[in-house]
Design a protein around this nucleic acid. Structure first.
Length: 815
RNA sequence: GCCGGGAUGGCGGAAUGGUAUACGCUCAAGUCUCAAAAACUUGUGGUCGCAAGGCCGUGAGGGUUCGACUCCCUCUCCCGGCACCA
């Protein structure tokens, strides 16, 4: 019999799966339960499929195959999240068109995935950079605009001077650009902003409906960062006495009143000063409003100016470094603590952030370390008084100087990017129109307005440009294409200009799981019927790095589409279960990186060992969600296993009609255990069990029927698709093993007449004995008492108690 | 600091209240061979012992239980996420 030759086998079968019906999810299959298995679609980079992709996708593939074998109608799609900076940067360097680059790299990825035997349904392939796809990404944006959830705003943004791109808060890590690592600066640019904060509570609540693993839920909850507390109003003492109530006098309330947010209103009596963020509007107001000149003493005025300049020049990295000594400046004016009427000074410091709460805090040095540090530095008083927590809110509300309030860590989503390789934002600026009601009206000379591109004109196709480089003014290269920018207003037909910003990377991946349900639909993003059939995603496998942002954004968009009635109202969340896969480290135990030279390339491994060995090894390394280092020796161990099972089947195929009892027991035990483990994503122990069974059968020279060999082959099939197809074929099975049902175990083989139980004395294991399956306590006690070597323990004292757990153990308590 | 997850042989790991270390790697001995490799067989937690066997042993300490890797409390360390977020 020939030995295991993976090259031959993989070559023989690989083509048979092109267009193979068994891997396709059938819309509306009535006889079967649907199962939507999703794994993140990759960003196709020039360096090809990474072994990390291979690992995650193999896990998802194994599960999808298992579900198919369990009789489900499985949709397991794949696509390309292909907009993004690396491609753009490569285009800038090489002068190649990003479209062509994307075509090349996706072809390469697809070929690599085919080699690794992934059972994707290629009929459903999507590509976020194709106009027929991003038409709907743009359409969703228009809907956000129409519902008042998108608007353009002058916003200080994080600016990466190297990539020349504005970044969302979440794209800045430790004050550095997520992509290139350069330190970011603050710049004020007019940006599209999406009001995800309107959905903060929904996004929090919705988690209760899901079956996400704990750490994923925690990541979402943390990011949303809901905090309950109170907003408290402090009156400002003016030079001419106290202003009593907002709105009661000629002056605007903002002049007199400072509002702070606190999660500890009970510490209000201990508030000994107020601190404003340098960007707080009150600061500007006090400094620039001529009416208020004189409020702030001259010296303080100079100090404030100097401090504001100092802060402005400070990088994001410095500002968020909490080990840095606190800095600040006294404004020279005072506020009044509404609880005890004490006058407390108002300071400005950059440890208070404008983006959170109200941008102003009441400082309670007795209860807060940061306030304490500030108080110590500037010799401010400390007061540890507080009032009982349960009384304070009602007291505050009763007296009218504050109210219960909730604040969130989650910020609105900056949606503009000044780059070429992204979805154009489908908006047009018209000087002559203004919004009115649900629509627009022609009213020249007024403010002008942003008008969405009508659905019939979508998609706004990304035009070809000569240079992909962002402009130095911070505008996208699209701004240089005059004939594209200049257009007509959809409302008045007059001259108008297109938006030149493009969308962030996340936009295309927000809703791709919906498109898979109906990838070729030209009328809508997906038909109701198809979404109704396939949604929600049953299992979503992805990386930890997407547990906050991608997950949150896509849940938000789904909830928004739900409100629009675009997605069917079956399940309020897009994903039922979210699972995060582990990380593969290089052989040296470090993260794989080109500079460390420890990168494992899946193609190379597959060339040497075969796709089956590679896949099986990756699933055997450890738990699917853990971090593991690559180990070539263990890989060889898995190759030995595949060779053994190959030998077991080829040597016994067609030889026996009936399997001996002992072997049947082993095989049925395997089927039971493997099924349980597979359903819980415990892939490593499935393989361990397969190894155990294979070794035992080979060692005993068992007589195993072809039918039973087939059962073993089927258990291995999700892991090693090629070799199992070959073995299945050899056993006389019809193509394909991957269209077979997962074997079922028979209870009768799991029962044995004689079982081994442990004998414990005072809880300590002393001996194992063989007893009849259903032996009574008396019988077991009898047996034990006859064992000579146990006498010394049993006679050491009186037997106080005997605990007999049938089938497991008997414990004698001797004292 | 907050949140989440961990800590088991020389190594990756298994065991969710009942025989700790399954499975794989490593290492050793043996079979085969002129020899080596591969393959196969056996062994491989520590310690005492010629042996039979004993004692110890799942990060540390305590607790619950007839019995704890597993449940509870306290602590240490490691990994991941978030963070001058009031």
């Amino acid at each position: 019999m020939a030995s295991y030759d993976f090259k031959e086998i993989e070559k023989k079968w690989i083509g048979k799966y092109d267009g193979f019906a068994g891997y396709k999810g059938l819309d509306f299959e009535a006889d079967k339960q649907k199962f939507y298995m999703l794994t993140e679609f990759p960003y196709p980079s020039g360096s090809g499929l990474h072994v990390g992709h291979g690992f995650a996708m193999t896990g998802a593939d194994v599960y999808a195959r298992y579900q198919r074998m369990m009789g489900k109608n499985v949709m397991f799609p794949m696509g390309w999240d292909a907009f993004g900076l690396p491609t753009e940067n490569y285009a800038i360097k090489s002068g190649k068109n990003p479209k062509e680059i994307t075509k090349e790299v996706t072809d390469n990825f697809r070929m690599q995935m085919r080699k690794l035997g992934f059972s994707f349904d290629w009929d459903r392939e999507v590509n976020s950079t194709m106009p027929d796809y991003y038409k709907w990404t743009q359409w969703i944006f228009v809907k956000l605009f129409e519902k008042g959830l998108a608007h353009k705003e002058e916003m200080p943004i994080n600016w990466c001077p190297k990539d020349k791109i504005g970044l969302a808060n979440e794209e800045v890590i430790d004050g550095k650009c997520e992509r290139c690592g350069s330190e970011t600066e603050k710049r004020t640019i007019s940006q599209w902003v999406v009001k995800i904060t309107d959905y903060a509570d929904r996004l929090l609540e919705g988690l209760k409906d899901t079956d996400f693993i704990e750490k994923v839920k925690a990541a979402q909850v943390n990011w949303i960062g809901k905090k309950e507390g109170a907003k408290i109003k402090f009156e400002i003492k003016t030079p001419d006495g106290f202003r009593v109530k907002p709105g009661m006098t000629g002056r605007k309330s903002e002049t007199d009143i400072l509002e702070v947010f606190t999660s500890r209103p009970d510490t209000l009596p201990g508030a000994t000063f107020l601190v404003l963020a340098p960007e707080h509007p009150m600061v500007k107001h006090l400094m620039e409003n001529s009416e208020l000149i004189g409020w702030i003493p001259g010296q303080a005025r100079n100090d404030i100016k100097r401090y504001l300049d100092e802060v402005k020049g400070r990088s994001e990295i410095e500002r968020t470094d909490d080990t840095r000594a606190k800095t600040g400046v006294f404004t020279g004016i005072y506020a009044v603590n509404p609880l005890n009427n004490k006058e407390i000074p108002i300071w400005i410091s950059d440890y208070v952030l404008m983006g959170y709460g109200t941008g102003a805090i009441m400082a309670v040095p007795a209860h807060d370390d940061r306030d304490k540090a500030f108080a110590d530095k500037y010799n401010l008083p400390i007061d540890s008084e507080f009032v009982p927590d349960d009384l304070i809110i009602s007291l505050i509300e009763e007296k009218g100087f504050g109210e219960k309030a909730v604040t969130y860590h989650l910020r609105d989503w900056i949606f503009s990017r000044q780059h070429y390789w992204g979805e154009p934002i489908p908006m047009i600026w018209c000087e002559n129109c203004v919004p009115e009601g649900d629509g627009f009206r022609v009213k020249p000379g007024m403010t002008g307005s942003w008008i969405p591109v009508p659905e019939k004109d979508l998609p706004v196709v990304l035009p070809e440009v000569e240079k992909y480089q962002p402009t130095d003014t911070g505008e996208s290269p699209l701004a240089n294409i005059k004939e594209w920018v200049e257009t007509t207003c959809p409302n008045c037909g007059g001259k108008a200009k297109r938006e030149t910003d493009t969308m962030p990377n996340w936009a295309g991946s927000d809703w791709y799981f919906l498109r898979y349900c109906d990838p070729k639909n030209r009328e809508m993003l997906a038909s109701q019927e198809k979404m109704e059939y396939w949604m929600p995603v049953d299992v979503y496998v992805g990386g930890d790095e997407h547990n906050t942002l991608h997950l949150l954004y896509s849940r938000f968009i789904y909830q928004f589409l739900w409100d629009l009635g675009v997605v069917p109202k079956i399940y309020p969340e897009p994903y039922k279960k979210r699972l995060s896969h582990g990380v593969l480290l290089g052989p040296d135990g470090n993260r794989m990186s080109k500079s460390k030279g420890n990168v494992i390339v899946p193609d190379v491994v597959a060339e040497t060992y075969g796709a089956d060995v590679l896949r099986t090894y990756m699933m055997f390394m450890g738990p699917f969600d853990s971090t593991m280092a690559w180990n070539e020796r263990s890989l060889v161990g898995v190759r030995r296993f595949i060779e053994k099972i190959f030998r077991l089947v080829t040597e016994n195929a067609g030889k026996y009609v009936v399997t001996d009892l002992e072997s049947s027991r082993l095989i049925h035990k395997l089927i039971k255990g493997a099924g349980e483990d597979l359903s819980q994503f415990k892939f490593n122990t499935v393989i361990a069990k397969l190894m155990e069974t294979t070794n035992a059968l080979l060692r005993s020279g068992a007589e195993v029927s072809s039918e039973d060999l087939g059962r073993v082959v089927k258990v291995l099939a999700p892991f090693a698709p090629f070799v199992t197809e070959e073995l299945w074929n050899l056993l006389g099975g019809e193509f394909s093993v991957h269209a077979q049902e997962f074997p079922k175990f028979e209870e009768k083989y799991l029962m044995t007449d004689v079982i081994t139980i442990s004998v414990q004395i005072n809880g300590k294991m002393r001996e194992t004995i063989e007893v009849e399956n259903d032996a009574s306590e008396e019988a077991v006690v009898d047996t034990v008492k006859k064992i000579e070597k146990l006498e010394k323990y049993l006679l050491a004292g009186e037997i106080k108690k005997i605990i007999y757990i049938k089938g497991k153990t008997i414990n004698f308590v001797v004292a």
